[in-house]
Design a protein around this nucleic acid. Structure first.
Lengths: 166, 166
DNA sequence: GTCATGGATGAAACATTATAACATATGCGC
DNA sequence: GCGCATATGTTATAATGTTTCATCCATGAC
């Protein structure tokens, strides 16, 4: 597979890749994962997950709501937030605190917190899974007697396509 | 000085330390720093900074507003947010994205982004300045061609005083 | 001195993000 | 079918943050 725009080695997606394929893959994986876990990926939750993936970058809850209303009537804020809560519990979606926005997870199999590189120019967010970052945090925390529960790492800057060439 | 509860070596403050002293020190330092920079630490901004420090932990903008109204009449949300913007520009205050809250900075002299250990039990937040964490982030970002602007590192867990003894 | 200028604050309204509370529906085991 | 837990519908509200325009005030030019 030569076009894996969301693989760990190339977390920033190519500009014109077949994103429909990404979405389909993510949904299929979510389906399988929930079945395995006995979690109920209902129609609503599946729709919300699909919308998150379609956005192809961090998307706010109210933007999701607006799009969801194109798919079903009667959707309200709790509709979206509850679906997102489920999806986050399952590791299918991450929340980016700095942006108040949500993004699909590439590798939901193992529970984890995302580390993100967020481009301030084009808005894309690339997820990292860098053990060295987590280790550096954990070492310092341990030295201070702090028992780590979760790590939020959100880096802003310019992605390879948006940064000045030189 | 044997009681420096906010020194880099002991970022979690002792329970009963003289916090009034911390506040006074922070204000004096802010005063000197702004004078040096030609920045105007006005009465309002000074009051807000004092309230942030007095809270002795992350505090929300609307909590600050409520307290500020005890000191002056007519304060509104922009009153607080504008003061906080100034204080953040000067590095005197950091924002913790996960908490939508603000906290005084221990070492505002050099511009930096904070790294925080946030106790989910008692709510205190300890600021780190750990080059190794920043380096780990920068290494991975550089490998991906990402040009870093700012790094948000917010770790939740249990502080030494709240964690189970064993 | 006073006058122009720009930054700081006052004041009202509004925008965005998230949750509470309670009712209804739906799926699933028995 | 019944009963139960979970999921969803619905309304309202809370919490957080911004826009806009008016007014004030310190500072420097003249």
């Amino acid at each position: 597979m030569t076009t894996t725009p969301t693989s760990p080695e190339a977390p920033f997606p190519a500009p014109h890749h077949d994103h429909g394929h990404c979405v389909a893959t993510a949904l299929a994986r979510a389906e399988a994962l929930c079945q395995l876990r006995g979690a109920r990926l209902t129609g609503l939750r599946r729709q919300v997950l699909e919308l998150v993936w379609q956005s192809h970058g961090p998307i706010g809850a109210y933007d999701l709501l607006e799009r969801l209303r194109g798919l079903r009537t009667g959707a309200a804020p709790p509709t979206v937030y509850r679906a997102l809560d489920f999806l986050m519990d399952q590791g299918l979606v991450h929340r980016i605190a700095r942006l108040n926005a949500f993004v699909g997870c590439d590798h939901p199999e193992a529970p984890h917190q995302g580390q993100f590189l967020i481009c301030t120019s084009c808005g894309t967010a690339a997820e990292l899974t860098e053990p060295e970052i987590a280790r550096a945090i954990d070492r310092r925390a341990a030295a201070l007697g702090f028992q780590v529960e979760s790590r939020t790492v959100e880096v802003t800057g310019l992605c390879p396509r948006c940064r000045p060439p030189a």
